[in-house]
Design a protein around this nucleic acid. Structure first.
Lengths: 193, 193
DNA sequence: CCTACCGATCGGTAGG
DNA sequence: CCTACCGATCGGTAGG
């Protein structure tokens, strides 16, 4: 019982931290802000967490692993490379839509990680990008995708989806499936051969 | 002479501030960091600038006005609405390419403005978005652009170009004209009817 | 342009 | 889980 209470309290703190980091940024968010958000004194937070940076680490690495997990599944698919890229666009949209606060912190605040973890994080990120790039390159070779700079395609796909966190806050009505369909259509119309 | 020296020193400070805000974020950048970057003591900065927030204000409003100025010119063009939207994409790329540090601070750090200025800034931004939106809507009515959610098109165009600041740092060789051509092709292939 | 310094706030610890 | 408190650092001012 003590353990389940402690566990859920940590989750409450994690979620409040993600929201705070998203809204004010990591540096401008104080542990006193966070404590207030979960009805504790600042010092009491440290019964549940190690440090401010540990909160950021958990957010960053949790999300990095979600993307890499998605990549694992996509690579195993029996499908054309265009289909695989569509599946990755869907992955980005779905992650952004289901955990909007966490993913925003992940996108924008990772640079505040300190160096053993920063390097580790950038390695994961680089690996994801490389694997994505391979799919694009093969897609181009097979004539499924227009012959453009693969890096340019990659970064455009990535960032095309990053405004979603803004959107979702003001318009919770738009259905996810409609969002997915329209964004995919917009992007694929552009890169499909 | 005193005046020209003071003026150029202020510009040096402004540029160092933009770089700092881009690299570490506004909140994590201290006035002591900034002073070190321009070979002064922190207190001496205040002979050239009013406050830390005033630096951010200048970055944010300067860039906001560049975008609005560009919009003025585009609206006056004698061209189809598709051409106008192409011109705006070019505008975004050119601003991003010619003043990469300032535009990044503008994109990401405006939320740290305090309230009289924050509201003013958001009003400018909203106005730019509305005018862009009108061009998209008319383009759709005229059958020049696919019939998709105009907001979705707007935000996708905006963010598609935001990764440029990363790109330019690692690959200063890619020519601007080639970048423009490829991004426009990628985006327009998707929205052109 | 500097030295000296201000009050406020930071992340975090001690001790219970 | 709290009170009390730490040293460090913050943006900025006084005074020269």
């Amino acid at each position: 019982m003590t353990s389940t209470v402690a566990k859920s309290k940590k989750k409450i703190i994690m979620e409040a931290a993600a929201r705070l980091f998203r809204d004010k940024g990591y540096s401008a968010s104080s542990m006193r802000d966070l404590a207030k958000a979960v009805n504790l004194k600042a010092s009491s937070l440290y019964n549940h967490i190690q440090s401010k940076e540990a909160l950021l680490q958990e957010i960053c690495f949790n999300n990095a692993h979600r993307f890499l997990q998605g990549m694992n599944e996509v690579e195993k698919m029996e499908a054309s490379h265009l289909e695989k890229i569509k599946a990755l666009i869907r992955l980005h949209i779905e992650i952004a839509a289901t955990d909007i606060t966490s993913i925003t912190a992940f996108n924008d605040e990772w640079r505040h990680l300190k160096d053993p973890h920063l390097t580790r994080f950038l390695r994961l990120r680089k690996s994801y990008e490389q694997r994505f790039l391979v799919l694009i390159k093969i897609g181009i070779e097979k004539g499924e995708i227009k012959d453009m700079d693969p890096q340019l395609i990659l970064f455009t796909l990535f960032s095309s989806v990053r405004w979603l966190y803004d959107w979702h806050r003001k318009d919770r009505e738009t259905e996810l499936s409609s969002l997915e369909k329209q964004i995919t259509e917009l992007l694929l119309g552009g890169i499909k051969a």
